[in-house]
């Protein structure tokens, strides 16, 4: 095993080009577990800790440019207003110690369906900026997850920045685990209201081979809210709409039975979380006088 310690982003890209099998390591919270437990012996470890730009974020007009290695703790503490869904998701990640090290880049790189950030990214809307010596490109989050623990990265590419839409309305995030802290998701659900476009976006974690959106549920809800004039009136969403939304969200799951939970439970729980997070966000939307400012 070789340990590569690039001092700059350019050096990192060059190293990755030269050694496409090199495994990037930033927070180490996935990679080191695999090494400690003898599950993985990469030829090269590519340490990204020395690259400052990966730990930086910038709040722009429309987007937040989030460096791949910004620790979850920082997201929780500094980006609650701009990225409320992701901030809530960050708060559910493992433990304080892990949140101090791990970042969204790691979740994306590992692309486990159980990664806590994915549903929030899917719901908010995001693009992943990846780069190689060949140049950079933006991958829409909907196209990023390609299979179980697989993503759209090329072997020579590294994740640089995640461009996440700033919240234009309330966002929520829920995750079921069988413990009240430090637990891997049995399943998770993210929901974002986008009053500017009068749309709702969702994200489901751990209930399909990849993180997915509940598209039918979104389409149903978008139509129902539009038809009923809910966005203007801010009236309470009727139980039947919420119920159907929850059922469709549940139907978007394609889960498995494993030691953490049954497929049946996952479908059930996603439905409950869909209904609850819709209720919470809609209450926030109503409560804020339907302003377009982000709420968390």
């Amino acid at each position: 095993m070789d340990f590569l310690r690039p001092a700059s982003w350019e050096e990192a890209l060059a190293a990755k080009a030269e050694h496409p099998t090199a495994v990037p390591i930033a927070g180490g919270t996935d990679v080191m577990v695999e090494i400690n437990f003898d599950h993985r012996r990469p030829e090269y470890l590519l340490d990204l800790n020395r690259i400052e730009l990966l730990r930086e974020w910038e709040v722009g007009e429309e987007n937040v440019r989030l460096g791949a290695s910004v620790p979850y703790t920082e997201i929780m503490e500094h980006l609650r207003a701009e990225l409320p869904g992701l901030a809530l998701a960050s708060h559910t990640v493992a433990s304080p110690q892990i949140r101090n090290r791990g970042g969204v880049g790691g979740n994306l790189g590992t692309a486990s369906p159980a990664g806590d950030a994915h549903p929030a990214l899917l719901a908010a809307g995001a693009e992943v900026e990846v780069e190689s010596v060949r140049g950079s490109r933006f991958i829409p989050i909907d196209a990023f997850y390609t299979g179980v623990k697989r993503n759209a990265l090329q072997p020579d590419e590294l994740i640089k920045t995640v461009h996440i839409k700033k919240a234009d309305g309330p966002q929520q995030y829920s995750k079921v685990g069988t413990r009240n802290a430090m637990v891997i998701a049995v399943c998770a659900f993210g929901l974002a209201l986008h009053p500017e476009t009068r749309t709702v976006r969702t994200g489901i974690g751990s209930a399909a081979p990849t993180p997915v959106r509940a598209k039918e549920a979104e389409e149903f809800l978008n139509a129902a809210l539009e038809e009923g004039g809910f966005w203007e009136s801010g009236k309470i969403i009727t139980p039947s709409i919420a119920k159907q939304f929850a059922e469709l969200a549940s139907g978007a799951c394609n889960p498995i039975d494993d030691v953490r939970g049954t497929a049946k439970y996952r479908r059930h729980a996603v439905g409950i979380m869909a209904r609850r997070t819709l209720g919470w966000t809609w209450e926030q939307y109503r409560g804020t006088g339907r302003t377009l400012e982000g709420a968390a």
Binding site: I25, T29, V31, L45, D47
Partner: peptide
Amino acid sequence: VCSCLVAAGQ
């Protein structure tokens, strides 16, 4: 941090 998950080289 959990020192078990920090690579020595880091």
